[in-house]
C-alpha cells in the first residue's frame, strides 16, 4: 500500500507544505507568489500573521502539484518545534484541524532532526551511522545519526550560528542582508590574505562571536590607516572571512570523525549552499577517505519535504501524536 503524507513547516519565516509518498517527495512548496496567485493575494513577510495568510494556499498548491486528493492522505506531519511559538502555532493548529477532519494520524516532527533526514529525500542516502554538520542562520551543530529516529548532538555553537557570522560580517562590511551569498560570490574573486584567529573552544562546540568582534577590530584599524581599505580589499576580506568560517567548521568536523571513527559525513542547512564549505567538504573527504553527502539546495533551507520524510519514518514506527499536542519553542534533540 502506498503511504501519502502531507507535511507542514512553519517554524520561522517561510510557510511550506509538501506531499511525500513512501518516503519520496511528490511536491515541496514554499509560500510565494505562485501559491498566492491562485488566491489573488500578496505574500506578507514575517512570522505568524504571514503564516496564517500563507497556509491554505501553500497546502492547496502542494496537494495539486502532487496530484493527491486530501482523501488519499494517510497522515499529516508538522513541525512541533523548536521555533518561534506564534509561527509554529499556525502550522500545528492547521495540522490538527485537518487530521481531525480527515480522521487520520498526526505526526509531530523535530525541526532540527528533519534537517538531517532531508538527506533521505533523494538518493543516494547515507548509511548509518553517519555524522551531519547542520549549519544555518540559526544553528550550527554536529549530530551523530544512529538510525532514522535515533540521533544525538555531539557539539553545537555556544553563541552565534555560522550563518549569522556571515550575515553580521556582511553588515560590518556594508553588504545587504542576508549577506552569506554575497560574501560567497565576492570571496571567489579574492584571495584569503588576511588571517583571523581561530577560537579555542574545547570539544566539538563552536563559537563565532569572537570572530565577529575580531573582524570588526581588524577593519577599524585598517580603515584608520588606509581610508579606502574596504573598497580596495573587499573580495580579499570576503575570501579571508569565508576561509576562516569554513576552516572552523571543517576542523571540528575532522575532530568529530577522529573521535567517533565514523567516516560517513553529511552537511545540511542553509549554509551548506556556501561554495567554500561544499568544496572543503569534498576535498577533505577525498583526502581522508570520507564518504560525503551534500543535499540539493531546496532541501538545505527550511522546507516541508524534510518534515514529510521524517514523518514517514515515524509513521512506519507508528509514532503518532494525539490531538492534545502543542508547539514548543525549545526542544532538545
Amino acid at each position: 500500500m502506498q503511504i501519502n503524507i502531507l507535511a507542514i513547516e512553519s517554524s520561522c519565516d517561510d510557510t511550506s507544505a509538501a506531499v511525500i509518498q513512501d518516503g519520496e517527495v511528490l511536491s515541496n512548496c514554499v509560500a510565494n507568489q505562485e501559491a498566492h496567485r491562485l488566491y489573488g493575494g500578496v505574500v506578507p513577510e514575517v512570522a505568524s500573521r504571514a503564516h496564517q495568510a500563507n497556509i491554505i494556499p501553500v497546502v492547496d498548491l502542494a496537494l495539486k502539484k502532487a496530484g493527491i486528493r486530501k482523501e488519499e492522505l494517510h497522515a499529516i506531519g508538522f513541525t512541533k518545534g523548536p521555533g518561534l511559538i506564534g509561527s509554529l502555532m499556525v502550522g500545528v493548529s492547521f495540522a490538527k484541524g485537518m487530521a481531525l477532519s480527515l480522521d487520520i494520524p498526526l505526526i509531530e516532527v523535530h525541526h532540527m532532526k528533519a534537517h538531517v533526514l532531508a538527506h533521505f529525500a533523494e538518493a543516494p542516502h547515507p548509511s548509518f551511522p553517519f555524522l551531519c554538520l547542520t549549519v544555518s542562520g540559526g544553528h550550527t551543530q554536529i549530530v551523530r545519526i544512529n538510525n532514522y529516529l535515533d540521533m544525538e548532538i555531539l557539539g553545537q555553537t555556544i553563541d552565534d550560528a555560522a550563518g549569522e557570522a556571515f550575515d553580521k560580517t556582511g553588515k560590518i562590511l556594508g553588504l545587504e542582508y542576508p549577506a552569506g551569498p554575497i560574501i560567497d560570490q565576492l570571496a571567489q574573486q579574492g584571495e584569503a590574505k588576511f588571517s583571523f584567529s581561530e577560537p579555542k573552544i574545547p570539544g566539538l562546540d563552536f563559537s563565532f562571536s569572537g570572530l565577529k568582534t575580531g573582524i570588526l577590530y581588524f577593519l577599524k584599524k585598517q580603515v584608520k590607516e588606509q581610508p579606502n581599505f574596504l573598497e580596495e580589499e573587499m573580495p580579499n576580506i570576503c575570501a579571508s572571512v569565508q576561509d576562516r568560517i569554513v576552516s572552523i567548521l571543517m576542523n571540528k568536523l575532522k575532530l568529530a570523525v577522529k573521535q567517533t571513527g565514523i567516516q560517513t559525513v553529511a552537511i545540511a542547512g542553509g549554509v551548506s549552499a556556501n561554495s567554500g564549505l561544499r568544496k572543503a567538504l569534498q576535498q577533505t573527504g577525498e583526502e581522508l577517505g570520507w564518504q560525503t553527502f551534500i543535499p540539493k539546495f531546496e532541501y538545505c533551507t527550511d522546507n516541508a519535504a524534510m518534515i514529510g520524510v521524517t514523518a514517514y519514518y515515524k509513521y512506519l514506527e507508528e509514532q503518532f501524536s494525539d490531538q492534545g499536542v502543542a508547539p514548543v519553542a525549545r526542544w532538545n534533540i
Binding site: G83, L84, H139, T157, I158, A161, A329, R330
Partner: peptide, 16 residues
C-alpha cells in the same frame, strides 16, 4: 543552564 545563543535568526529564544 542550557546554552544561551544568539536569537538573530529565530527572533526569540526561550530558556528555562
Amino acid at each position: 543552564e542550557e546554552k544561551v545563543t544568539s536569537p538573530t535568526f529565530a527572533l526569540a529564544n526561550v530558556y528555562a
